[in-house]
Design a protein around this nucleic acid. Structure first.
Length: 711
DNA sequence: GTTTTGGCAATGTAGCCATC
DNA sequence: GATGGCTACATTGCCAAAAC
């Protein structure tokens, strides 16, 4: 990227040769001079490399509208444009109305009024004076139309300008006069960045660029058959000027610049390409669809939450999203751990990082930072403790850091307001014959996008009807979808689904009901995804068996022991049998996958109480006991029920225990005894088929199951 | 050393209320 | 109407002291 890109574009727009003005040229005295950054300029490096033969030039989208010698079309065989570039072509600027109507003269010092071949000094001066007179006449026409509309507090229309006699030709002439006031000798490559910036800034101060652009926009719209308000030009009344602290009435310009490379073969690669938007810049484009197969990527989408910006201003909703993410991280933990072991030597590489990616609105990312969560965000330092990585909408395009992530969670969506959407659409299509209709304010005076019902179908055949906002104008609606839906597909594309295999799977969770281009495998509801309070305790790592202990350990989740009981009762009502099996099974086995049973006592009650603690890598009896005491500071005499295996071996131990228990039950039943519950078959099969040579000799219901004290 | 008993922690259900 | 949060109330069951 050029270090003077913003100067380069202005210079280019003014019709100057960018290379001669900024890169390599002559100063006013005719001395050869060059840009201070030329030595480190990737542009020039690419240029010199290319001179040696066929080559490849790489530049940012910002170059698309800039005329540069190196990018002259005759020098190029093929231009390739990647991803959504059209947004970099939209511009907005504004200037005080009275600056546009103020009396001004052409710039005598500009190259426009330099002596021409065979032109006498007198003829030269006449040409200047004639232009000054002509500019006065043109300006008067425009000012008449603008003043009338301004006094009536309405937007100026094309009919107003036509009635005043203004033509497209007038506007082109006036734009040239504005540029003449830039001055010629003020810019040359020998100046340092600051001096050039100042020179351009002086021109900006003189509003030459803005005023010239204003004429160009008016001229372009006058060339249409429309008669209504201008699409590119609006009055803004009583806007605060932050620099001066005064209120101003402004002419606001929304327009788009034109893409170069119209005569050279051009290939655009864009998964979300919209033909109408591309044809706006490249009318002769043809479109080819390339089908891509995804394997190993499972997509789930919620159908009952939109995920607006407003919704995530609520901390409770941000917490719920965090809960969903942590839940998914927990479910994927064995997979993540296996990848980490495999990549142990390369774990510093961001690309190989298996931790899930959460893509959210910027405000959510900022709030999490502020709330002090361990968070690793895109562009920030590595935070190994963070359970997942975070990036925000608008900042994920083209990035490749999440190619091997195990999951992506897309949180909410970015939707522009109706007026903003209309501004962008008008900017894109200001030269077209059709106006962009504007949405009227509702009863409360708010301008909001209407909604319509859209039915989505998942790959599993299930259907969901959701309310989705849209714009009645097709162009605006396409722009809306480019901003909203395309950003979601871009976020999903970060996990590189096309390059995945069954061995490198990825779970994608879309937490918005906006239907995108990507068909989900299945739908989910918000309630299904948000962990309930018991799951939240599990994710926190310690689940006491007793309700009062739950309430004490998690005061933010439960107000009282009764609340725990009630919640448990309701939860069990939904899956009564499972809960009984599970709790019995927990109690029967000393260890379960990734967790261990603990017993402890609390002040004021000598009775032993139990709970389950999630194991972390490297855990010892002391660290487990410490976590119990962190949750319940008055807990003492914490013991672990059973030995503490490596968490990764815990599953094996649990399987042994389950098989052992099953054998015991069969034995009891063979002797005519009755046991009212069985180990659920799913628990045994969960860990896969495994040959067990013989059950462990130790009786399962050993009254002294080898307790390990933490003290 | 064994059994009984009182106290109370823990549990489940019913029902009310607020919110979505 | 569904859901989630709470309290009241009756019942269950555990622990430890008391009684045998």
């Amino acid at each position: 990227m050029c270090r003077k890109a913003e100067i380069a574009e202005k210079v280019s727009v003014a019709g100057y040769n960018v290379t001669e003005t900024l890169c390599v040229g002559k100063d006013p005295d005719g001395n050869a001079v060059e840009c201070e950054f030329k030595g480190s300029c990737p542009y020039f490096r690419q240029l010199s490399e290319r001179r040696e033969g066929p080559g490849l030039l790489i530049g940012a989208h910002a170059y698309l509208p800039i005329r540069m010698e190196m990018l002259a079309e005759k020098r190029l065989d093929l231009v390739v444009i990647d991803e959504t570039w059209w947004q970099s072509m939209v511009r907005h600027t504004s200037s005080p109305i009275d600056r546009f109507t103020a009396k001004r003269q052409p710039g005598w010092n500009s190259r426009q009024y330099g002596p021409r071949k065979g032109e006498s000094a007198q003829a030269n001066q006449h040409r200047f004076l004639d232009d000054a007179d002509e500019f006065d006449r043109v300006q008067l026409k425009a000012t008449t139309a603008i003043r009338a509309a301004y006094d009536a507090r309405r937007n100026v229309t094309l009919a107003d300008f036509r009635a005043a006699g203004l033509t497209t030709g007038d506007c082109g002439f006036a734009a040239g006069v504005e540029y003449s006031r830039l001055g010629r000798a003020e810019l040359h490559p020998g100046q340092d960045h600051a001096t050039q910036h100042e020179a351009v800034q002086r021109a900006v101060d003189r509003e030459a660029f803005t005023l010239a652009r204003t004429w160009r926009c008016i001229g372009a719209e006058l060339a249409t058959q429309r008669t209504g308000p201008l699409m590119s030009l609006r009055f803004e009344y009583d806007r605060l000027n932050r620099k001066t602290g005064t209120l101003e009435n402004l002419l606001r310009l929304d327009y788009s610049v034109e893409g170069l490379f119209q005569t050279v073969p051009l290939l655009m690669i864009d998964a979300d390409a919209d033909p109408m938007l591309i044809e706006r810049f490249y009318p002769n484009a043809t479109f080819n669809q390339v089908a891509a197969r995804w394997t190993g990527t499972r997509v789930r989408q919620v159908t009952d939450r939109t995920g607006s910006k407003l919704a995530f201003k609520e901390k409770s909703n941000r917490d719920r999203v965090r809960g969903i993410a942590l839940d998914l991280v927990d479910q994927l933990a064995p997979h993540i751990e296996a990848i980490r072991r495999r990549n142990r030597l390369k774990e510093r590489s961001a690309t190989l990082d298996p931790r899930p990616l959460v893509v959210c609105q910027m405000q959510v990312e900022d709030a999490w930072k502020e709330e002090g969560h361990a968070i690793e965000y895109d562009g920030g330092p590595r935070v190994p403790d963070a359970p997942f990585r975070v990036a925000h909408f608008g900042n994920v395009r083209g990035k490749d850091d999440w190619r091997h992530t195990t999951a992506a969670i897309i949180v909410g969506r970015n939707e522009p307001s109706a007026p903003e959407l209309e501004r962008v659409t008008r900017a894109l299509f200001y030269k077209s014959e059709e106006e962009v209709p504007e949405i009227e304010a509702n009863d409360r005076g708010r301008i909001v996008l209407p909604k319509r019902a859209v039915t989505m179908t998942a790959k599993d055949g299930s259907k969901a009807t959701v309310q989705v906002s849209y714009h009645p104008d097709e162009r605006a609606d396409r722009v809306l979808r480019q901003i909203r839906e395309a950003e979601i597909s871009q976020a999903i594309a970060r996990v590189r689904p096309v390059h995945r295999t069954e061995d490198d799977p990825c779970e994608v969770l879309i937490l918005t009901n906006v239907p995108g281009r990507i068909q989900p495998d299945t739908f989910a509801t918000w309630a299904q995804l948000v962990p309930d309070r018991f799951r939240t305790m599990e994710l926190a790592g310690f689940v006491p068996d007793l309700a009062p202990d739950c309430a004490d350990a998690y005061p933010t989740l439960f107000d009282s022991p009764a609340a725990v009981r009630q919640a448990a009762s309701r939860r069990n009502a939904a899956a009564k049998c499972d809960a009984s099996y599970e709790s019995s099974f927990y109690r029967g086995c000393h260890t379960f996958e990734g967790s261990i049973r603990v017993e402890y006592r609390r002040e004021g009650n000598r009775r032993g109480r139990q709970g389950t603690v999630a194991l972390r890598p490297g855990d010892t009896p002391e660290t487990v006991a410490q976590r119990v005491r962190e949750a319940l500071p008055d807990a003492y005499a914490v013991v672990l029920l059973g030995a503490l295996p490596d968490p990764l071996e815990a599953a094996q131990v649990a399987l042994d225990a389950a098989i052992e228990l099953d054998a015991y039950i069969e034995e009891v039943e063979a002797e005519g005894g009755v046991i009212w519950w069985r180990v659920p078959a799913a628990t045994v099969s969960l860990h896969g088929e495994r040959n067990v040579v013989r059950p462990v000799a130790r009786p399962l219901l050993d009254p002294d199951p080898g307790r390990v004290s933490a003290f």
